[in-house]
């Protein structure tokens, strides 16, 4: 499955930027997200490249010349050491978990295919990530890190949280986006306000 089709091709949530749906606080937050993509501070160059390759499979964006940036924001979280407020008893602290997890993916790729993850064909990358998701990994590359938990709880969650916080992602799923001070009036079945995405193409 390579093609991607949105039911809302004509919807652009940013058109609401100057309407009452967006207040200055929210504009500041989203402007930062769009314009101030952070530089690399925590990951090494190799880790960064590897994570770029992984993120491109977890959240593929072949339809975009300018993909939604993901890795810079993961690096930002790691640099600030801003965790979710808990870590699983079988996991090391967040920063170590990421380091070990990325090393695990790299090791797993070299072990199975003799190449760097980023050099593998997309289907092979997907198969490898699928194996990690199911926990079918070689413990030698992962240390004490539970690979499946790293994949589902850290890697996947973080990547999609970043992707679906981007206006481009709101557009493709027809999400109303920021809504303050103006919220919504029409709430029932098949009801939509003029400031929402229109009727979807099915």
């Amino acid at each position: 499955m390579n093609g991607f089709k949105t039911p809302y091709p004509d919807y652009d949530v940013l058109e609401k930027w100057d309407t009452p749906s967006w207040n200055p606080q929210t504009r500041a937050v989203v402007r930062r997200r769009l314009d101030q993509v952070p530089e690399r501070r925590f990951l090494t160059e190799q880790e960064w490249q590897l994570l770029e390759a992984v993120a491109a499979r977890v959240m593929p964006q072949p339809d975009r010349a300018d993909p939604v940036p993901i890795v810079p924001w993961i690096d930002d979280t790691l640099a600030a050491n801003r965790g979710p407020g808990y870590r699983y008893a079988d996991m090391p602290p967040m920063r170590e978990a990421w380091r070990q997890g990325l090393a695990g993916i790299a090791g797993e790729a070299r072990e199975r295919h003799g190449r760097n993850f980023g050099e593998l064909p997309a289907e092979v990358q997907d198969a490898l990530l699928g194996a990690i998701q199911r926990g079918e990994t070689d413990g030698r590359h992962w240390g004490d890190l539970p690979a499946a938990r790293f994949f589902s709880e850290l890697l996947l969650k973080q990547i999609v949280a970043i992707y679906y916080a981007h206006p481009a992602a709101w557009n493709e799923i027809g999400f109303g986006g920021p809504a303050s001070p103006r919220g919504y009036v029409r709430l029932g079945f098949d009801e939509r306000d003029p400031w929402e995405a229109g009727v979807p193409d099915v």
């Binding site: 009452p20 303050s180 001070p181 103006r182 919220g183 919504y184 009036v185 306000d193 003029p194 400031w195």
Partner: peptide, 14 residues
């Protein structure tokens, strides 16, 4: 209401 008259497009209805 929230936003007052600046938010008229919602509040004229709600």
């Amino acid at each position: 209401n929230m936003g007052g008259w600046r938010n008229w497009s919602q509040m004229i209805l709600q």
